[in-house]
Design a protein around this nucleic acid. Structure first.
Lengths: 209, 209
DNA sequence: ACGCTAAGCGGACTACTGTCCATATTGCAA
DNA sequence: TTGCAATATGGACAGTAGTCCGCTTAGCGT
């Protein structure tokens, strides 16, 4: 407790889709914004698109954009949300080895591969969603969900593992920025990254002293 | 390989201290800026200080500030540089167990504890140094040095370890943002974090299949 | 001491993020 | 249909990061 101040609390922003009591115009605008942002991000790259540009392309004012999504990373998160939901569905209720039924080590490895696939496809969107303030990576419901899942699997693997610690280690090894660094600077390919992750999980599972 | 673009290349900025051919006025200004920034950061917290404020407190123009330090994170890095140098000295040439002489597992554990101490003391400065663009964490000479050190130790521990992969895993587990998250949100204390790190290193060392 | 040149300097300037509030619109109730 | 309260809207606004370029100054050779 000292020089640290991480913004981790989830601000109560209406980031996620489909509020049931959403006014018709609000819904229309939300969809226009998401469509415009998705297009612009894909066309020009996430970092090169200003919020003004998104608002203009969507035909709404800046205030609307910020009201709905809070900030730049909130917008990115909202775009990712759908894909994420699909993946979460798979590891919570889907088929083994990702879903319930397989041994926990298998499930954890499959989870890692799923996240790596997600990163490979949506890496810069994920990074945009985590950029901004310190600790953004840990804020928000997605990290919490992933963390709880990994936490549970680690406990299943071996209750002696300090799951509070190792859950974040596992997730840190599935970080989008690091993936980019490995690809561009270190020269690791996806196979090697997956294989490294498998070894990491095996290591953690093996020595729960 | 696709939606990823991480800014990792080290821009050739004169961030580090003591250019031998530094003009007297430049040196004077550099020192004034560093002193002013250090004070302001300590007084108000890293995030609450604008670059303008630093420039004004130092009695120099904004152009000078940016010329010398490139951007906000460069300024933070420069402030950290001295402490960092000291630590690097210790693990490269200092006494065991941090320095050469101790078995590599011991050295790695000691290294981790050193970094954790650094984070405990200078956490938000470190975070400021890494904030900004995606991949900032991996850019710069400090990460490279740490990485090389860990890489070497891992090879010493067991050449079968994929050191290219695990070096970054080890460093990811010594991340300042994560430390803040652990402290504030998970409720881990420093002892538990150190102990977790020790277990991680042991795990990696143990199962080099 | 003097003048030259390369380097440093600083503040005006642009672009962007995020806030705020007067106005417009919606959905409901009478 | 009409009036009303709640909510959404959008553009003006303030604050900050980072760039640029004409001016100044240090350091050096004579």
């Amino acid at each position: 407790m000292d020089g640290l101040a991480v913004a981790t609390g989830q601000a109560g922003l209406p980031v996620l889709g489909g509020d049931p009591c959403e006014r018709a115009d609000a819904k229309r605008n939300r969809e226009k914004i998401l469509a415009a942002a998705e297009t612009l991000f894909a066309e020009r790259g996430t970092e090169a698109v200003s919020m003004d540009a998104v608002a203009e392309a969507a035909g709404v004012g800046k205030g609307t954009l910020y009201r709905r999504f809070g900030d730049r990373s909130g917008l990115a998160r909202a775009i990712l949300d759908e894909r994420d939901r699909e993946f979460q569905e798979k590891f919570i209720r889907g088929e083994p080895p990702l879903g319930p039924g397989a041994p926990p080590v298998e499930r954890l490895v499959a989870f890692g591969e799923g996240v790596i696939d997600l990163i490979a496809d949506y890496g810069d969107l994920i990074m945009a969603a985590q950029l901004g303030k310190a600790g953004a990576r840990f804020a928000g419901p997605v990290y919490a969900t992933y963390r709880m899942h990994v936490h549970g699997l680690l406990r299943d693997i071996d209750p002696r593992i300090d799951a509070d610690y190792f859950a974040d280690i596992v997730l840190a090894s599935l970080n989008a920025e690091m993936y980019g660094f490995w690809k561009s600077d270190v020269g690791l390919d996806k196979t090697r990254i997956s294989s490294g992750f498998r070894q990491l999980v095996t290591s953690i599972a093996g020595t729960a002293a």
